[in-house]
Design a binder for these strands. Structure first.
Lengths: 358, 358
DNA sequence: TGGGGGGTTGAGAGCGCTCTCACATTATCG
DNA sequence: CGATAATGTGAGAGCGCTCTCAACCCCCCA
């Protein structure tokens, strides 16, 4: 037979064992008030003796809470797990949720049919809220499904679909991509470089776009024409960076600095530069973005923009938990944290980390 | 108010709308037989019209199925997300589960108190089964909690606690660590190297231990005394590899080949070798293990042992779904896949990938 | 000694769903 | 054409829990 799922004891059983009613056991289990200390102890002992654990589905059915939160990751070709950036953010989320006794459901939306499956899940009340990462710009507004299901939702990164910017109720957490990119570019210019180029990620992602804008901001401020600065785009990967860099070198052999949209791209750029016989940083200075672990391994170690990725994850989780309402710690005996101030998007700081590449 | 959770329509509502009973709607929703085509269509229309989605908790309460599986990752300092190996495995799991309409609950057990929290969750019937990764050897048999809760469980990697080897019912999926390590070492020996050394991971992890054994197997087969081969251990990280390599060089300056227990360690070893002025592969040949993406970026690109990590994840998921019983596709209308052959551990093949480092 | 009042406890009604079983309807056959 | 089977549908009993509300007990004060 397919696994002999031994029947777990119910509230009823504990009540009988302790000689009290179901209601009393429920009170004890949930830490509710109004139970004599003596009875409370007796019930506790019975719970222990029978190895009772409350049935999640039954509880959830009446409380309308699941104590779980979905992390939806919408991306055509799931780089999620290979992308250390994401991984760290996910870790931050996981840790924060664990602190509040909340489970994390991971939902990967790689293809169109996943969209439907996930919508169904969200509508089915599996979770109390949603953390939404939608990395691509095309397709149906990803995350609309969660909002439509009436679930509290927090976005990772600034949502980029048409109209998103106008919606003041949209909650998201993002790094200061624009400011960070500006910082990095100013560093290049401060080094005396006058022919900087940019390697951008997919411009349908707001992070890539914002970083490009930051790059241009710095040029403008320094009196250079952003439109004249060479730019090439690709995916946020080492391969993408390598290809874009090669392309850039072909069209603009005179460039003396490169702002890469991500560390992975920067690593690729280093490869392409080496292949072209350029020295880094002597001939071409390179800065990256993200400060991944691999940034410090690179040869030469990358100057890059650091974001507190794990912290962003934690903030996302916290924001969501606040939206959900009361923090479901210990079965609800905690204080109900009403949303005093209206929640609003959070932009976290980005800092320059100077290493050898620039 | 904390989020106006708009009341979703219930079965009852759909039944009223379609002019049938709840039972009939249930049958239609679950694809059950015995409903006239005309009625079926009418119900479908009502479902559509009201935007009905079955309540998960209620269904789960009666079916005793949740359609979710927990991935428990027990590790003191969660490298989970930074470790690309894991990430790929998780992706494989996620994809396979998605194919079977099963959700993935991620549970990180970083500290002792998490253990208790997770046990509670598992016992509460949140999930139908457990995929268990317990990377450290110490502490209470991690995973015992899942087994104790009577949940179908599959382990990632060979469980290492005392007695695990004797338990024939223990299900796990592992790479052929021993065989792969032997392959890699034989490659080094085949290159004419006669003073190979090993960099091992934490030997309380079976994967590290198995790889060391594989290394020794190759030496023995080649007529070399394994006990004479220099060995240093550390964590499965670049830092660990760097430190261990430095230590090895100090004690055994004459070594001409290194088998590293992981690619990350190998990358660290490359750094240490460079710092010591050794050329790779001329002075010292290096092989790694895992074939991470970074293995091909390394300088020189690493010769390493490739495992089908994503495939391992898929197999784990498949094994678990089979244990759980019938594959819960489309609400159970699928064939019940009884365990015809008794399930048994799966060891996947490991292949050598030759690049420049050896 | 009797009547509040506060603190404890239990009875019972659901939460939304599935599933069994009895009933209604129509098809099938002697 | 009535008996029997096959098919379609509905009534109702839970699944295990929470939560309201009424009942209860004991103590205090008049």
């Amino acid at each position: 037979m397919p696994t002999d799922r031994s029947p777990r004891p119910t509230l009823e059983a504990v009540a009988a064992h302790a000689g009290v009613s179901r209601a009393t056991v429920s009170r004890v289990v949930n830490g509710g008030p109004g139970v004599r200390a003596e009875v409370r102890e007796r019930v506790r002992a019975s719970v222990q003796a029978l190895g009772y654990a409350p049935n999640f589905a039954a509880r959830s059915l009446v409380t309308r809470r699941t104590g779980a939160v979905a992390v939806v990751i919408a991306e055509p070709e799931s780089r999620v797990f290979s992308d250390p950036f994401f991984s760290r953010q996910l870790r931050g989320i996981g840790r924060e949720l664990a602190c509040h006794d909340t489970q994390l459901l991971l939902m990967l939306q790689e293809r169109a049919e996943d969209h439907e499956r996930i919508s169904r899940y969200l509508a089915g009340g599996h979770v109390d809220g949603v953390l939404m990462f939608s990395l691509h710009g095309q397709g149906p507004p990803p995350g609309a499904q969660a909002l439509a299901a009436g679930l509290p939702t927090v976005f990772g990164g600034r949502p980029g679909w048409p109209g998103a910017a106008e919606d003041p109720g949209l909650l998201y957490v993002d790094a200061d991509n624009r400011g960070g990119a500006r910082l990095a570019t100013e560093h290049l210019l401060g080094l005396g470089r006058r022919r900087p180029a940019a390697l951008t990620g997919p411009l349908d992602q707001t992070s890539a776009l914002d970083r490009l804008h930051g790059f241009q901001d710095a040029l403008t401020a320094a009196g250079l024409a952003p439109s004249r600065a060479p730019t090439a785009g690709g995916s946020f990967t080492a391969e993408g960076g390598e290809r874009a860099m090669a392309q850039l070198l072909e069209h603009e052999p005179g460039l003396d600095a490169v702002f890469a949209g991500s560390d992975l791209m920067a690593v690729g750029a280093l490869r392409a530069l080496r292949a072209a016989g350029r020295r880094v940083p002597e001939d071409v200075a390179v800065v990256g973005f993200d400060d991944l672990e691999s940034a410090s391994w690179a040869d030469p170690p990358l100057t890059t923009v650091r974001q507190d990725v794990e912290g962003m994850g934690r903030i996302m989780a916290r924001l969501l938990l606040r939206q959900i309402g009361d923090v479901p710690a210990d079965g609800g005996r905690g204080v109900t944290a009403r949303t005093e101030e209206p929640a609003s998007p959070v932009i976290t700081e980005a800092r320059l980390v100077v290493r050898a590449s620039a």
